[in-house]
Design a protein around this nucleic acid. Structure first.
Lengths: 246, 246
DNA sequence: GCAAAAGTGTTGGAAATACACCCATGT
DNA sequence: ACATGGGTGTATTTCCAACACTTTTGC
């Protein structure tokens, strides 16, 4: 037994007891969640920011975050923050990355877990906007508080990559949408132009869009058909990977 | 001013001061890093595990982890753990996911950040294996301690996906390798069979392999040519994404 | 000379791209 | 009638998958 303990010590392998006492003692850090909340409106991809009130970062914008409570699951924290800010609870939310540099936050050692959420502004409009909270075009995001610029950029890249393999983007649209809106969304997220015929071909070939037999209204031109996304069918057919492609 | 504070309170938006006091007070958690260390040997993908010493999880295997120190960057923790266990410091290491359920660990509330590392066993052989540490075939990993099974599975999936878009896998091979070894590696990671001619075609077309003008030795058949990977050329040409592909 | 793996090309089908005209609606 | 975006098809090219025989080495 003593031998075992000694061996452990030599190799820096801690016994359960040692870990337990460390957990209970001083080796703790504050943990926060920061949410990068994307929305889509006026054919632009937007992100929801709040004005920071810290002295040093006065007048800078920051992400929506809060400390994780000691008795709260990490994912639950993210949902709580989102709910507090937007009133929405049935949203797309995914963990992206954890940022843990010692000096990343001026309030002390705070490790933060970044989550992305995609909300569709149709729902969000139901809520009242706080005057300290604003949607910003992702194109013009710069000089955020703390290390939030870095966090934002990582989440944005994550989103760009993700929407190409997974139809997440649809969480940003109203439940009924036209193909033009869908294409505008992809063009806004990826910041590229797409060929309209090929775009349609691609989506119809995927066969996840349901024709609602309805049309746009109040548009000053020929109205487009409206569709919804068939999540069930998507889950069934979901692509299984194979193929090397650097 | 009082109004502003009140508004904040109403909306659960905390002032910097409030956050600072929370960071310094009780709202802290223990934070750990767990490393999922992959290796490749005998044409099998392996993962390095240690025998857990906790009473409840006696005789189960677990990942290599430790608490993050209060004055240590998160990434630095992962490198430290790896160094302690394997003696290696120049390895591939990437953060994968953070696990933060309240009851995930019996020693108390411990949030853990999972890192994947890929080490090539040619280097690792230089170090002495601790008798509590072993390489396990990824095929037979089951019933790990705590929630380590879940962490492992997530990292394994991550690896499978990642090697298809990024030539990480090469970190698992010796610096000189034959195409057969490379193919075996991909087959082991992805758990599929690949066509030899198409595999070669693909890699040669990528043009990241440098022909060393050397051959295998001591093989009981026709020796294969040896190659190394040209990381610089890869960095130059690295693919920029575009295209929707669910 | 035999076993074992190395090395090598072609072909057919599928998917991606590029591209231009008519249609329905509101004003 | 005109301005605006909706809707559609085809030809070309590129990429991927399938597939079998000859070569080199060690024994």
């Amino acid at each position: 037994m003593a031998v075992s303990e000694k061996e452990h010590a030599q190799k820096n392998i801690k016994t359960f007891k040692v870990i337990q006492s460390e957990v209970e003692s001083i080796k703790r850090v504050a943990l926060s969640v920061d949410c990068v909340i994307f929305g889509f409106d006026e054919n632009k991809l937007k992100v929801l920011l709040i004005r920071s009130d810290s002295k040093k970062f006065k007048s800078k914008w920051s992400l929506l975050g809060d400390l994780v409570r000691p008795e709260e699951d990490l994912d639950a924290s993210a949902y709580r923050i989102l709910k507090q800010r937007t009133g929405l609870s049935d949203v797309y939310l995914e963990q992206v990355h954890t940022f843990g540099e010692v000096n990343r936050h001026p309030a002390g050692r705070v490790v933060t877990v970044a989550y992305c959420s995609l909300i569709n502004i149709e729902h969000y409009r139901l809520k009242i906007l706080d005057h300290e909270l604003h949607w910003h075009d992702v194109e013009n995001i710069k000089d955020l508080a703390f290390d939030h610029q870095k966090i934002f950029e990582r989440c944005y890249s994550w989103l760009q990559k993700r929407v190409q393999e997974h139809p997440l983007g649809l969480n940003l649209l109203p439940s009924k949408f036209s193909l033009r809106e869908l294409q505008n969304l992809y063009e806004a997220i990826l910041n590229i132009k797409l060929d309209r015929r090929n775009f349609r071909k691609k989506f119809f070939a995927m066969d996840f869009l349901v024709d609602l037999e309805e049309e746009e209204e109040d548009v000053p031109h020929r109205p487009g058909k409206l569709y919804k996304f068939d999540y069930e069918k998507y889950e069934m057919k979901k692509k299984t990977w194979s193929g090397i492609d650097f």
